[in-house]
Design a protein around this nucleic acid. Structure first.
Length: 106
DNA sequence: ACCGTGACTCTGC
DNA sequence: TGCAGAGCCACGG
């Protein structure tokens, strides 16, 4: 891994770390707040590189449709779903949540 | 430097 | 509501 790419990952992780419990942000939001407007895909890549034991609340990052972008049934996907519910977020139809209600607006 | 890739997003049919 | 297409950005081979 190059030093610069790690810098961007750190930037993204720092933004994600700011999302309060009970709130969520979309990949696009995180990218914009990290100074990388339009680089939503880059955010996903950064989260994928997070260490397994990281305390960064990566589960609070969802897609623009209010749904979990991880494959349904995957270990990480279930973990994200579980953690969101643990924070009191209601998943409509068991997979969709109300962005208007839970979206983090700094 | 070129090209394929992806935990994305928006538009249109 | 669902899916395909086309932008999108940065990375890695």
């Amino acid at each position: 891994m190059s030093k610069q790419s790690s810098e961007i990952d750190l930037q993204i992780w720092q933004v994600v770390a700011l999302i309060p419990a009970g709130k969520v942000a979309t990949y696009g939001d995180v990218a914009r707040m990290a100074g990388l407007p339009g680089a939503a895909r880059r955010v996903g890549a950064a989260l994928r590189r997070l260490p397994e034991d990281s305390r960064i609340p990566w589960h609070r990052v969802i897609n623009a449709q209010g749904r979990i972008s991880l494959p349904e049934g995957s270990v990480s996907g279930n973990t994200q779903c579980f953690r969101l519910e643990a924070e009191g977020l209601l998943l409509r139809n068991n997979k969709c949540l109300d962005l208007e209600k839970y979206r983090w607006r700094p």
